[in-house]
């Protein structure tokens, strides 16, 4: 099914992406092709169960889960090593366009 402009705009918001009107139009047309391609699964011959969980791996007993034992956290300098931190915080300054 084709993607309406409203639908596309909603997806863009959910994805936190912005497109210029031309870009959006171009994208939307390409998306139509891709969605048509995805739609082919609805022609799939095979039936199936309703259980969609656990497609690749088996379930584990809760006993195999991680034990509640403290592991040392990393130093603040490491945590902030990819940003200009401030007083130990991540931060986003307001800046005017």
């Amino acid at each position: 099914m084709a993607l309406s402009k409203e639908d596309f705009d909603k997806l863009a918001v959910l994805s936190r992406l912005r497109f210029s009107p031309e870009e959006a139009e171009e994208f939307r047309n390409e998306m139509d092709d891709i969605i048509a391609f995805a739609d082919t699964i609805n022609n799939a011959v095979s039936g199936g169960t309703d259980d969609i969980k656990n497609t690749s791996v088996n379930a584990v007993a809760y006993t195999a889960l991680r034990e509640d034992a403290v592991r040392e956290s990393l130093p603040n300098e490491k945590i902030l090593s990819n940003v200009d931190g401030s007083r130990g915080f991540f931060n986003v300054k307001r800046c005017v366009k």
Binding site: L11, A12, S15, L17, R18, F27, M31, I34, I35
Partner: peptide, 21 residues
Amino acid sequence: YCTRSEGFGREVKHRIILGTY
């Protein structure tokens, strides 16, 4: 918004939008 729109390439945006859809 600005970071993601400027930072991701075209194909990645495509797949993000498709995946969101």
